[in-house]
């Protein structure tokens, strides 16, 4: 029972934070509030006994994302552009989609229902088999690294590719970009570069 009220409190906190994010114009405040949003979401996950998810949300969502937003904020204006017109159709569309999501939420199985479809497929096998066979207390890690090793490999490659793409885009380590930078920084290097290209 007390878990329910904790959840009600945390979800209403999420709603309040979302409301303030919409109202605020200062970008740094919005970044701070989105960090707070992630931390509250992490608290909800802890309350639902999904500690691993909560850990990830707290570390990635409220930690690193906030810092990356702050670092990106250096190239943005202090305040959000002021919107003067109010798009009625967008509000209408958002209202309809929200209503549909609420209706769909009633069809979801109750939280913790043992007969929910998600708990009947492969989950019983993981829970019953993994400890006697592998002696690993944390089933999440076991599923992640040994039952679903391919998925995790894919995730790692996705993280690697995404990071590589952003780093290449922002630091611009292509030959033409390097040439442009050296051309603006000093003529000496440009001459050297010209010599090298002529020789080649």
């Amino acid at each position: 029972m007390i878990e329910l009220w904790v959840n009600v409190f945390l979800v209403s906190l999420l709603v309040i934070i979302t409301f303030y994010i919409m109202r605020l114009r200062r970008l740094i405040g919005i970044v701070a509030l989105s960090g707070a949003y992630s931390l509250t979401a992490a608290a909800i996950f802890v309350n639902m006994d999904a500690v691993d998810v909560a850990f990830t949300e707290a570390a990635v969502g409220s930690g690193i994302s906030t810092i990356l937003f702050l670092a990106a904020l250096r190239y943005l204006p202090v305040e959000e552009a002021h919107e003067t017109r109010y798009p009625v159709w967008s509000l209408f569309l958002c209202g309809i989609v929200g209503l549909m999501l609420i209706i769909a939420a009633f069809a979801l199985p109750e939280f913790g229902d043992p007969n929910a479809p998600a708990h009947l497929h492969v989950a019983p096998r993981y829970i019953e088999e993994s400890y006697p066979l592998f002696h690993i207390p944390n089933v999440v890690t076991n599923v992640l690294a040994s039952y679903r090793g391919f998925d995790t490999l894919g995730e790692t490659v996705v993280v690697f590719t995404a990071g590589l793409g952003v780093i290449i885009l922002l630091t611009g380590s292509t030959l033409s970009m390097r040439f442009k930078q050296s051309a603006t920084s000093s003529d000496n290097q440009t001459a050297k570069f010209d010599e090298e290209t002529r020789d080649a």
Partner: peptide
């Protein structure tokens, strides 16, 4: 196996996060 594989994940995530911050 799990320890080795998790080490690989950890190394990549660590470097990507730090690299993203440095790039930004």
């Amino acid at each position: 196996g799990i320890i080795i594989v998790e080490l690989g994940v950890g190394l990549t995530v660590f470097a990507v996060m730090l690299g993203l911050f440095n790039a930004f």
